[in-house]
Write a protein that binds this DNA or RNA. Structure first.
Length: 428
DNA sequence: GCTATTATAGGGCGTTCC
DNA sequence: CCGCGGAACGCCCTATAA
């Protein structure tokens, strides 16, 4: 009976994470900014969303409102950029391509991170070092790599690779003794899945380091907190609970929302904004190859001004049949807006949410359904998308408006170096 | 005066169904 | 017929992450 079946090799996860990604994207074509503090602002130039190492050293925090550090920016000559997602998405794709060419199992986890399955490799550390060098040479952005038997440990290994330059940007955390040594140094909030709130509650129980969390009783953690934290504890002990997902499950909702450049009270400009978000959301839906059965619209007044009248309605409109046609989504969104809007409020943000998504094949019209299907919808939408892929915003709906006083501010936008010929830097 | 965006998982609670 | 208890679900909220 006991023919020892070949035991699968210990799983090995690697996390590749780009360092200060947006800031380094902005520096790619600006060698004059090397060694200088660089920050990138959120949509509408509101908050800091990325900082170069030099900017972090100045004490500039994540998500700090830009207006609060205006003096510091001026004094230290910090280079400021509006976020340029077209650029970051393009650089991201190049990084991912390098990884995918070298490793068969890659899961892109976010715009600047990917998990790799390196199980069974003879010398994964050598591969990691080679990858790091390759991305730097071919794309130009620095990355750090952490290796460990679980994803949560790989995250911590990656954090260590970033924190200690002597590691050469690669940390191998396969050895249990090394794991414990690193976990002891890591504050519990640095653990993946532990945020500010959980961190505070854990500290109140005397669990202040990653090591103490790893040494806590998983069953107890499940009872006191949630299954998520139980998984985290197991992962910290080197037991892999989160597997690589090469084909991530289809998205469950599509959201398109934005803070306005100016507060908006009147219905007319809100109609334009909601039309715009609805059209954009439908476009994303088609990129995904999905259909929606439900459109919601929400509005927000400024919660930072509690003395103004507050209103944050969310109105949902079901659709008679699943669709990815911008006209259907737009029409439903405008109907929802009529219900949501109340006069006498200064709205600062609106959003369009598509829910109840379905794959086209899994949905079949019932035989006795006599609803008229709009014919040639697919062809029309394909044409619309093709034209707009060549340059966003070439074709749009009249209800989106032309003046768009609500449109976001982007006062420090970098040129489209990688996606527009006319913005290519010239070398003389 | 200015305060991000998009997405997911899970908890709590009320309703409905059996 | 009623009432009970649990499953299942919708809805809203919180927490987290990048």
């Amino acid at each position: 009976m006991s023919t020892a079946s070949p035991r699968p090799a210990q799983p090995l996860h690697a996390l590749v994470d780009c360092n200060n990604f947006y800031a380094n994207c902005e520096r790619l074509f600006r060698p004059d900014l090397r060694g200088r503090p660089v920050i990138v602002l959120s949509n509408n130039d509101g908050c800091v969303v990325a900082r170069s190492q030099e900017a972090k050293a100045l004490g500039i925090g994540m998500a700090v409102p830009a207006y609060r550090i205006r003096d510091l920016i001026e004094r230290e000559e910090v280079a400021v950029f509006s976020s340029n997602y077209a650029l970051y998405a393009d650089v991201s794709q190049r990084v991912m391509r390098v990884l995918e060419e070298a490793v068969p199992r890659v899961e892109q986890y976010s715009i600047d991170e990917a998990f790799l399955d390196l199980s069974g490799l003879a010398d994964p550390v050598a591969l990691a070092r080679a990858l790091r060098q390759r991305v730097h040479r071919w794309v130009g952005v620095p990355v750090s790599i952490g290796l460990a038997p679980s994803r949560t440990l790989a995250k911590l290994a990656n954090a260590a690779a970033k924190r200690w330059p002597a590691t050469g940007g690669v940390v191998d955390l396969r050895d249990p003794h090394r794991q414990r040594r690193l976990l002891r140094l890591m504050p519990v909030e640095e653990v993946w899945g532990v945020g500010r709130r959980l961190g505070r509650r854990l500290r109140a129980m005397g669990i202040d380091s990653a090591l103490k969390l790893a040494d806590s009783d998983p069953a107890l953690m499940r009872k006191a907190f949630s299954v998520m934290l139980e998984r985290t504890v197991r992962e910290l002990r080197g037991q892999s609970c989160l597997e690589l997902e090469e084909a991530p499950p289809p998205r469950q909702q599509v959201l398109c929302s934005r803070t306005f450049a100016e507060r908006v009270s009147a219905l007319a400009p809100l109609r334009e904004a909601v039309s715009h978000f609805a059209a954009r959301a439908a476009e994303k839906l088609r990129e995904d190859g999905q259909l929606t059965r439900q459109v919601s619209v929400y509005l927000r007044t400024n919660p930072h001004h509690p003395r103004e009248p507050q209103h944050h309605p969310l109105v949902t409109v079901p659709l008679p049949e699943p669709t990815a046609d911008s006209r259907d989504v737009l029409h439903a969104a405008l109907r929802a807006l009529e219900t949501a809007w109340r006069p006498g409020h200064r709205y600062m943000k609106a959003g369009v949410l598509l829910g109840e998504l379905v794959q086209p094949r899994s949905w079949q019209r019932d035989l006795f359904d006599h609803l008229p299907t709009r014919r040639r919808s697919d062809a029309l939408m394909q044409t619309l998308d093709r034209i707009n892929r060549a340059g966003r915003g070439r074709l749009f709906f009249a209800s989106e408006g032309i003046r768009r006083p609500w449109q976001m501010r982007r006062d420090h936008l970098s040129p489209a170096y990688t996606t527009r010929w006319s913005d290519l830097p010239r070398v003389r």
